[in-house]
């Protein structure tokens, strides 16, 4: 499926019941050079809207929130040494974590590409 977007500038793609989550190009551009990512814990469950990690740039720290209910199944450990990958490839190698969705339809309620573009016309 194509990506869905949150108002907090996260993206999520879903394959079966596994969602892959990252931050949008707009978010990385606003933050500037990303120097540290506080990754979530594998095996931990979150509700939609729970704080799940932090992306820190030279300028600011931005919390990231779970876009839907689920259990974290994998984290992108490569970001621990190379957090700047979020700047260079936010929608690809800069993915942050994978989450096993327990309430899949929640994702349908998020913005699609057109809606996100309308939400962030500067992006």
């Amino acid at each position: 499926m194509s990506a869905k977007f949150t108002e907090n500038d996260e993206w999520i793609t879903v394959d079966g019941e596994i969602g892959t989550v990252g931050v949008t190009s707009y978010a990385q551009d606003q933050l500037g050079d990303i120097v540290y990512v506080e990754l979530p814990t594998v095996g931990k469950t979150y509700k939609a809207g729970d704080e799940i990690g932090v992306v820190e740039s030279v300028k600011a720290a931005a919390e990231i929130f779970a876009p839907a209910d689920g259990e974290v199944t994998e984290i992108n450990a490569a970001l621990e040494d190379k957090p700047g990958v979020i700047n260079s490839d936010p929608a690809g190698d800069g993915w942050i974590y994978k989450i096993k969705l327990s309430n899949g339809p929640q994702v349908d309620g998020l913005m699609d590409d057109a809606a996100y573009k309308a939400f962030r016309p500067d992006a």
Binding site: N8, D9, V23, Q30, L31, G32, S57, K59, A60, A62
Partner: peptide, 8 residues
């Protein structure tokens, strides 16, 4: 995401 620009 917050707008991170410092404007002190």
């Amino acid at each position: 995401m917050p707008r991170p620009e410092r404007s002190d």
